[in-house]
């Protein structure tokens, strides 16, 4: 299909889509409507489970199965990243030149690294109380680790990044979520049922299974994102393709 034809087709379809979507939106309840039946029920259920952050309650308790699927997607992406970003048979590792870093950057990076890690842990730990949770905190932890790359160079990052351990931690985190669901079955309740003692509303340990799953997700996300980024960084910095291969296989 020529570029012009493609665009013409797109515009025709886009007009239809736009008309239909606009018409659909006129049928929606008004923006800011007061009626949210599912939401109201979810809030009541969260109170019942003594989880102060309703979103955590929905994520890790009421609709925990969605989150199980979501974490499996992340796990799959990490495994997929390992597979796709592996060093091909004909590639080799190049030595990495030591990066020259501004002294100010180095100082700031070393200062920021611990602050970031503390923030990440804080965000994970308070997941069922205030905004945040395993996923958000995990991403911050993983990003924070890469400050080592900014502050120093790739070698230092590699030294403080125990990939084998993180790999295993990722799998353990992903598996732990599915296994935690079995606890409910073991005591004769439903899969993923929140059977742990619920604690006091508003306390760090409240919510029964919620903080436990939250922690598992935090471990999984934190280590998974590091592993995934490591794949990309290796490709970007370290792996070289053999001469002639870059362009050669395309024919």
């Amino acid at each position: 299909m020529s570029r012009r034809l493609r665009l013409a087709l797109f515009w025709a379809a886009a007009v239809v889509f736009a008309v239909a979507f606009t018409a659909a939106c006129t049928g929606l309840p008004d923006f800011g409507t007061l009626s949210h039946p599912y939401g109201s029920r979810a809030i009541a259920a969260a109170f019942h489970q003594r989880t102060a952050n309703t979103i955590s309650s929905v994520n890790f308790d009421q609709r925990a199965f969605d989150t199980l699927g979501e974490e499996s997607i992340l796990f799959a992406a990490v495994l997929g990243g390992l597979v796709l970003l592996r060093r091909a048979r004909d590639e080799r590792l190049a030595g990495v030149r030591r990066g020259r870093v501004l002294p100010s950057t180095r100082m700031f990076g070393s200062l920021l690294l611990p602050i970031t890690l503390v923030t990440g842990v804080y965000i994970v730990a308070h997941g069922q109380l205030s905004p945040g949770g395993g996923f958000q905190g995990g991403v911050i932890l993983a990003t924070g680790l890469h400050l080592a790359y900014i502050a120093a160079d790739y070698g230092v990052l590699k030294a403080i990044r125990p990939l084998a351990v993180l790999d295993a931690a990722d799998a353990v985190g992903a598996g732990a979520f599915a296994v935690l669901g079995l606890v409910g079955l073991a005591v004769g309740a439903a899969y993923l049922q929140n059977v742990l003692p619920l604690g006091t509303f508003g306390q760090l340990s409240s919510g029964g299974l919620v903080p436990v799953i939250n922690a598992a997700v935090g471990v999984e996300v934190g280590s998974g994102v590091v592993v995934l980024l490591a794949g990309f960084l290796d490709q970007a910095v370290e792996i070289v393709s053999p001469t002639g291969k870059d362009n050669g296989a395309g024919r």
Partner: peptide, 20 residues
């Protein structure tokens, strides 16, 4: 205050890095 301090220090450092 932590936020203020981080932004102030970070701002100076990032400006230098972008300049470079």
């Amino acid at each position: 205050l932590v936020i203020a301090a981080l932004t102030a220090v970070g701002g100076a450092v990032t400006t230098m890095a972008i300049g470079r």
